[in-house]
Design a protein around this nucleic acid. Structure first.
Lengths: 201, 201
DNA sequence: TTGGGTTTTGACCGGATGGTAAGCAGTTGC
DNA sequence: GCAACTGCTTACCATCCGGTCAAAACCCAA
């Protein structure tokens, strides 16, 4: 199905993708059913398939949208900015994305966890290229003595791991912390300290 | 089905659980089918159900086994040891578990990611209790000025996130690093540096 | 109002999947 | 060698699920 044209097509595709995000992120691709998505969307199952040609197609549309926004924070890391502040700001943005878009994070995690064959191309292409580009910048900052010398790629991995953890393992985080905690606020403080100490040259 | 008695029961339950781990960790609960597990195990589907009463039961057995071994590294953190070395050793053991038991890590991740209702009890009970016990120890070390003052629970979260990332996002890690890398060796070095700097009082 | 397009639906299909029944085969203890 | 139990298989069932189809409902311009 080509991109929406009329108002009603626009609105319904959005409703479907919103519902699909809800269900896919909570159940994984195989775990989600069209009936569930239809129910969340408030539409009938055949109606979903009027807008998207298959379950696969809905999932694909979701992943395609996702990847763009997912890489934005890293793209925004400014090669001519102040190194420590830039890395710190990147970490902050990733943490905010985990807080504000946990479903997107879990959709991504579900996908990669299960071999990520639907994302392999994008990961080996776009993502890898962007990481290599930013690794060059980080290495330069290290050469200039403006941040500590570290493996730049594993530095990025650490930011992904530490921030996405709060979205992907949300249930565990909340269960262990118990009542009366603001996981993301605490994580912000903790990670601020961590990267301050790690990056100091 | 009660615990195995005869030799053949012992052997076949093990074969089934091994196959189930393979399939569940790669596909999630809903994504796995009894036929797949049966094929990997080299047994017929009805034979699986002779040993385990249902798909659910196989999964439960797997999770029950898992939790014990999963908590071992943290249990082993010695309250009367040298603080920095103890935390570092814990991180090392967790990283080794990611390397040597990635399927177990992914089984766990799949489960928690999808709301973790099958693990909720264990997480809110055993896991939380153990974390609180170790948090007391960490706080004491901080009070004694033997490691840096940090939120002890988020310190543990960071170890989980950073080590499990290499198992759970293995596909991404390998795709981004490309050929000719030993992810776990590099991660070991990186995390050694990270926690050395983070923990220094 | 009418006619043509768009949107929605109920009924249905075929294959996959978890699980069962009933009997056959193997093993073990005597 | 034989009974009795354990282990295993073939055939089958019911349900779920992705997807189809034909027709109904809706919308809107002329």
């Amino acid at each position: 199905m080509p991109r929406p044209r009329t108002r009603i097509q626009q609105k319904n595709s959005e409703t479907i993708l919103e519902a699909a995000l809800e269900v896919f992120s909570a159940q994984g691709f195989r775990g989600a059913t069209l009936d569930q998505i239809a129910e969340v969307a408030g539409l009938s199952k055949p109606n979903l398939l009027y807008y998207f040609s298959s379950k696969e197609a809905i999932h694909q549309a979701l992943l395609a949208d996702l990847l763009d926004t997912w890489l934005d924070p890293l793209r925004a890391m400014n090669p001519v900015g102040e190194p420590v502040a830039e890395v710190m700001a990147y970490m902050r943005r990733k943490l905010e994305m985990s807080r504000d878009f946990p479903r997107e994070s879990r959709l991504f995690a579900n996908e990669v966890l299960q071999g990520g064959h639907r994302l392999r191309e994008a990961i080996e292409g776009e993502l890898k290229a962007l990481v290599e580009e930013k690794a060059v910048v980080l290495r330069r900052w290290m050469d200039e003595g403006r941040i500590a010398r570290l493996d730049p790629v594993h530095l990025l991995f650490s930011i992904w791991a530490l921030t996405q953890h709060y979205a992907d393992f949300d249930m565990q985080v909340r269960a262990v912390l118990g009542e009366g905690h603001d996981p993301y606020a605490e994580a912000g403080d903790f990670l601020e300290t961590l990267y301050t100490r790690l990056l100091r040259p």
